[in-house]
Amino acid sequence: MGMILAGLSAIMPNLDSSRQNEFDGAQPGLEELAHPHAEPVDPHIPGGALWAMVGFAALAFYFVSQPALPEMPLAATPVVQASEIAPGKRRDPIKEPPRIRVGAFTYGCNECHSLFLSAPERQGPLAQHTHIKLDHGLNARCFNCHDRFDREKLVLRDGSLIGYDQVPTLCSQCHGTTFRDWERGMHGKDLGSWDLSSPRHVRLECHECHDPHAPAYPPIVPLPAPNTMRMGTPVHLAHEHKPEAGNPLAPWWMHVAGGDGAAHGPGDAHEQTTHHTDGKTESAPSTHKEGGGQ
């Protein structure tokens, strides 16, 4: 505070001296009272300096009344449920052949399938096991993997039978390179620990991620996009045809111009398709890439 006052008083004598001759009827001032024998100084406070001080005080009041940080347009932070980011395996496959429960009794596969001989396999909708969606590329045959005569076993290409707990061996017959990568940890998913020697380390098997009958990984719903402006304009603002709307970092004319083309960046060639809830699809101008690729 002392420094500010000293600065003010350093300015004011200059202002005073510039207009000293205009005021003849001067009155004794503070300096004179303090130093009676000092050189006389014009005690007038010129109108300009007074107004400057009033203006300064008004400005100071304005700054104090304003919040210290500008109001940033923050979109509501989306809430991500803990279940959506819970680690774990995608599927919980059977390790044993299934048991069918009919009334009070449970039956294994062979208890029915040994009674009648299977018809030659045909392509087409299944009469039984209709919950199975068979979408395994070229491999659209039951008996490529299931044994025709022992339904509780899986069959390899050489005719030998394996149990339901040796699925990777079965898959590796066709997917050799993937099996090679999986063995070395390059394909597939591990859980628990990055350290292979740790007892917590778990390596998931083929059918713990892939459905054996429809192995392609299905599309899933993505979690919310980021809100920050530094990654370009968020989608909820790009919808409004104003790429810079609400962006405090944008120059002022962007706000004035709105979305009339002046605000469009150079990256319009790569268009981004935005989806509306009413089903209308439109092509919005590309978001700005400043900072996006740093």
Binding site: I220, P222, A238, H270, T287, G292
Partner: peptide, 12 residues
């Protein structure tokens, strides 16, 4: 530079 952070699709 051609990447997009704000992609918002029904499914990925």
């Amino acid at each position: 530079e051609q990447g997009n952070h704000h992609y918002d699709r029904p499914t990925v």
